[in-house]
Design a protein around this nucleic acid. Sequence first.
DNA 1: GTCTATAATGCGATAGAC
DNA 2: GTCTATCGCATTATAGAC
Lengths: 203, 203
Amino acid sequence: MSSSPVEERSRAGRESAARVALVEATAQIMLDEGYAAATSRRVAAKAGVKSALVHYYFPTMDDLFVEVVRTRAEMNLQRQREALSDDEPLHALWRISSEHDARLWMEIMALANHRKAIRSEIAAYADRFRDVEESVVTLALRSHGADMAAFPPVVLSMIVAILPRMVVLEQHLGITRGHAEATAFVEQYLDRFELRKESRSDP
Amino acid sequence: MSSSPVEERSRAGRESAARVALVEATAQIMLDEGYAAATSRRVAAKAGVKSALVHYYFPTMDDLFVEVVRTRAEMNLQRQREALSDDEPLHALWRISSEHDARLWMEIMALANHRKAIRSEIAAYADRFRDVEESVVTLALRSHGADMAAFPPVVLSMIVAILPRMVVLEQHLGITRGHAEATAFVEQYLDRFELRKESRSDP
DNA sequence: GTCTATAATGCGATAGAC
DNA sequence: GTCTATCGCATTATAGAC
């Protein structure tokens, strides 16, 4: 290991500048031009290194894609953790979904449809993510004595997770119909289960 | 034109056997292996012709992809039209969404994210599709005197359209959490607005 | 309308120098 | 750890025979 003092805390060279740059460049190209455009030569150029280095860090391109999924999954789970300590975790989760880079995840899902390694990675992530979502929603509903048989928390959490992502995707395609109504509808339901009376326009 | 008597009714050679086979082969490869695998050579091989013929019918690969989108869009709009004459059009639309090839549309959307020609094509289709969905839902709600301000038809129609597609996609990725509950939830709402009392388990 | 042949480019991956 | 150089193959697209 040729770690300088500054790098010493990084885990076994997994965070060398070039490696991190390659993963980030790959995500960026996938987002901008699609997963098919993320070739070893293109990501190397964007990261400012030569393409042979891609194969030094990631023997196959699949290894690189898996690392992109892992990295972005951890980023999102971290954002989710932060949302839990929000005053209104339900609203915070909804906001995460909206800000979420839905378009990158669409690329990742399309990729996962045809690559086993990525499929397992994304499935594991989705399970962890939905775990947290469901428990937050369950808590919110319970504290309002909602009828959870008629309105299962996991369903509300799926709608809260999926609808805003779909709106983002559609907007990029030039589709806008129903978006305003869908957003208003979900927010109205969130308010119903998580509105701190003393905090709205009347502090 | 060298049309045989049988082919005479087809519009200006746009439906030659080879051309149709190429479009179908492309859709199949996109579904099975992703849009990146749909190369001129691969689709030609699958259609049983030589790759130069692909470029005879479709000067660029984008032209071919656009034709796939057009063809599948027309197929789905036709299925939708048939659903309208169903005894329970709301349930029929829900069924279409479920049977819908969500995975192919995911590929098409990923492709559309980065290719302008395909983007316009899919936007036009989505608008026509959602048009019909919305009016069917509006009719169903109105005939039950539902509160449409609190429950906008376009939102219900989005949920009815998106949720089952998402379930299909996730299932293929190995995610199952919440699927049964989501399905049951939507069906319960459909039944509420479109249940012919005399037809259920008591004919 | 369909083919053979080919040009020009880009790809993933590896060997080996430094 | 990063580079140069290269192998072998696939890609889109075109030219031109039939």
